[in-house]
């Protein structure tokens, strides 16, 4: 290590190498360089390139792509379509994940449940879309069960519309939201709850006045991560939804611009708008996080 390097030149003042090492730059630090160059070249550069390219449209002035996007309802409606899918799904997933994770945190053997829930995340949206096409279809087991039990007279139409995509986003999104929520909930010191219970707080009061304020920042981050995933829905919106109608999401518009019209400038503009909307929602949610308590709550468990 550098600490063991000879320091014979100290009388002439520290060498450049020693001064850099004191600030943490030495041969070991250089190990981070390849990965940093890689990320700059393949993540930052494409983003910057796409940003610049979006202002160099095929024809028209430098803002022509954005003008076209916001004047063509077939294009700007995609923002509303995507939000109309992703915001309710994210809220529903979070709303379901909170009580479930409060229950699961009491379990000793969580592993089986977490393993089952990891399945849809690892299998990915394409497989979930393909499975749901059969399962939720008019002849599928889901509709068949509902009709057999007399809950429905006619099979419901659940695929090739809004609800198909909604279902696929719940199947892949709920486990993701749940596992994130669980890690936040188990991170809170149970002694806080016990103290509240000793003082006579009911379960609902303990949740509302002890857990909820402590968990709000974690929920905000969970919401952001789940929302960003849902907002970028692509394969299931094409396979399970109506890609020309109610589930024409913004990623479909970007894909069509790039690979059907071969207008990379327009595609970059749509991708930038997509990134901007995601960023706007995330900033909005995280900014409201400042209204809640921030401080230590984890006790011994980190």
């Amino acid at each position: 290590m550098e600490a063991l390097a000879p320091t014979t030149r100290v009388e002439h003042g520290p060498s450049l190498r020693q001064r850099l090492a004191a600030k943490g730059f030495d041969a070991v630090t250089l190990l981070a360089v390849p990965a940093a160059i890689f990320s700059l070249l393949l993540f930052v550069y494409p983003f910057a390139f796409g940003f610049v390219l979006s202002f160099e449209p095929k024809n028209g002035g430098w803002l022509a792509n954005y003008q076209r996007f916001f004047s063509d309802s077939y294009l700007y409606d995609t923002i509303a379509n995507t939000l109309w899918l992703s915001v309710p799904v994210t809220l529903l997933n979070l709303l379901l994940a909170v009580p479930v994770s409060f229950r699961v945190r009491l379990m000793r053997r969580q592993r089986l449940l977490t393993t089952i829930l990891v399945l849809p995340i690892t299998l990915g949206t394409v497989l979930v879309a393909e499975g749901l096409l059969n399962y939720l279809g008019p002849q599928g087991w889901f509709n068949r069960t509902l009709v057999t039990f007399g809950i429905l007279d006619q099979p419901m139409r659940l695929v090739h519309n809004y609800w198909g995509v909604f279902a696929s986003l719940v199947i892949t999104g709920f486990p993701f939201t749940f596992l994130l929520t669980l890690s936040y909930v188990t991170g809170i010191d149970p002694a806080l709850e016990q103290a509240a219970a000793t003082l006579g707080a009911s379960a609902w009061q303990r949740f509302l006045h002890v857990y909820l304020p402590l968990l709000m920042p974690g929920f905000a981050i969970t919401f952001c991560l789940s929302f960003v995933q849902a907002f970028s829905v692509f394969p299931s919106a094409v396979l399970l939804g109506e890609p020309a109608g109610s589930t024409r999401v913004i990623s479909i518009a970007a894909y069509q611009a790039a690979f059907e019209e071969y207008d990379y400038s327009m595609a970059s503009a749509v991708a930038m708008i997509m990134g901007f909307v995601q960023l706007a929602i995330v900033v909005l949610v995280l900014a409201s996080r400042g209204l809640f308590y921030r401080g230590p709550a984890s006790g011994a468990k980190g």
Binding site: L42, F43, P46, F47, F49, G50, F51, L53, V228, Q229, F231, S232, F234, S251, A254, Y255, A258, Y264, A267, S268, V270, A271, M274, G275, Q278
Partner: peptide
């Protein structure tokens, strides 16, 4: 999400 940076990357 990959689709957001994927399109500029693919370009």
């Amino acid at each position: 999400p990959p689709i957001t940076f994927g399109i500029p990357l693919a370009t």
